[in-house]
Nucleic acid binder design. Structure first.
Lengths: 154, 154
DNA sequence: CAAGCCCTCATACTTTGGTAGCAAAATAAG
DNA sequence: CTTATTTTGCTACCAAAGTATGAGGGCTTG
């Protein structure tokens, strides 16, 4: 589109030049002025063309690289729970202990846990003992509270 | 700066033209070609100047819009806890019961709760009974789990 | 004021939980 | 294979939690 306009403009200008040539042929001394006029006109044409072709706003202000920073809220809930593994190793909690910890948090009794894990009540009690000692608590309810707080369980 | 370059370029080109004029004076027939060459040269100069002046990248492509999405972690903690009041009234939980429920969640024993609230152990036990019945649970640990799940406590 | 609810407390009893100490398998690590 | 850790299990005792039932005082409301 712009190219067509340019072509037409060019043709028109060449025609204008031809006319000027005929008209100012007598002013042989002003040949340089003539050339200068052409230079100026075509420079302007070039500038206009550049602006047109590259579809810039006529003002040519600052670079148009807009940086839009969008803050996306990521809600951290139980859904995206990640085990605090470093703390687990620090407290030297075993797999089984963590397993039992989860079941404690879900409100199961020792007997229920024993049944679920196919072990005896004694075993669960032993695990509890070790668990409470490692977590430095006295009761299962405290263990659950602390474990949740330390992200050991969801 | 660019203006200076332009001026110098213009001067140089005019000089070149003068030289060309002298050299191609014999080719009188190619006067139009000469003019055309000037037109093309100055058009190019104009384009270059426009790009230079308005500090565009030479490619002049589309405006670049950089969208940076920053993921911001929003931790859902006690801070944005709102009591599920409708559920409280639905379950007919009293103030005192909710109070005790919170203390249960924090891992306190019945005796500790009694001391904190300046009531007897019996009273706490009674509250617990009513609480468990209303929440339809059997143990304090289940009560805490359910209460947290139902947003009755943080 | 009587009815209803909440908070309080008590007794007696049952169940569950927690402590202490010990020890045998199973598994992992060297 | 040996050593260390984990998992499992036991007995016995004590502490805490939970159940059932009753009851008195305070407060609100029809």
């Amino acid at each position: 589109e712009a190219t067509i306009v340019y072509s037409i403009s060019l043709a028109f200008l060449l025609f204008l030049l031809k006319w000027l040539e005929l008209r100012f042929i007598i002013f042989h001394k002003s040949f340089e002025i003539y050339i200068g006029a052409i230079a100026v006109i075509f420079t302007a044409l070039g500038i206009w063309l550049a602006l047109k072709l590259f579809r810039r706003d006529a003002f040519g202000t600052k670079p148009k690289v807009k940086t839009i920073v969008v803050e996306k809220a990521v809600y951290i809930t139980n859904e995206n729970f990640f085990l605090n593994t470093s703390l687990v190793s620090e407290l030297e909690l075993s797999k089984r202990e963590l397993e039992i910890l989860s079941l404690l948090a879900e409100g199961y009794s020792n007997q229920e846990i024993a049944s679920k894990l196919f072990v005896s009540l004694s075993t669960v009690k032993t695990h509890n003992q070790n668990l409470f000692e490692k977590l430095e608590v006295k009761r299962r309810t405290q263990a659950v509270e602390k474990a949740k707080r330390l992200h050991l369980i969801p």
